[in-house]
């Protein structure tokens, strides 16, 4: 299927900008002493989630459906880990759910190609 350039709605631009800002702040948290204390592999796991989230925002920025799928996947993996370590962030869940709702709303307008 041929890829076509699609105009990104302002609301999605806003979501992506917020997302990129979140990534900038989350990135140092990957190797923070508090995450390191949880276990040897937790920084790697959080790093993977941050990287996947970052890639998903780029996908959404370019109006790609894989961006939304990746974002939802990253969100669930992150929340499962946070539940397992008993560090649930309700504000984070609310924001992410809102982002997912907005992304899903515009999902049909997005491109199926890479």
């Amino acid at each position: 299927m041929e890829s076509i350039i699609r105009k990104r709605p302002k609301l999605l631009t806003f979501v992506c900008v917020l997302g990129f800002t979140w990534i900038v702040f989350s990135f140092p948290a990957v190797f923070s002493p508090s995450v390191k204390k949880l276990g040897d592999w937790y920084p790697a796991l959080f790093g993977l989630i941050v990287a996947v989230s970052f890639i998903s925002y780029i996908g959404v920025w370019h109006m790609k459906r894989w961006g939304v799928s990746l974002f939802i996947l990253a969100f669930f993996v992150k929340e499962i880990i946070l539940i397992l370590i008993n560090d649930i962030n309700y504000i984070g869940i609310v924001f992410s759910s809102l982002f997912i709702t907005i992304m899903v709303f515009y999902y049909k307008r997005m491109d199926v190609n890479l």
């Binding site: 990534i23 990135f27 990957v30 190797f31 390191k36 040897d40 592999w41 920084p43 790697a44 790093g47 993977l48 941050v50 990287a51 970052f54 890639i55 780029i58 370019h62």
Partner: peptide
């Protein structure tokens, strides 16, 4: 320690992915 070696590798790979994804894409 092992945890610091893992952390070093993690940060390196993470930086590589994050900084290289936009040019690659």
């Amino acid at each position: 320690s092992r945890s610091n070696v893992i952390l070093g590798f993690t940060i390196s790979i993470l930086i590589g992915v994050v900084s290289g994804f936009v040019p690659a894409y």
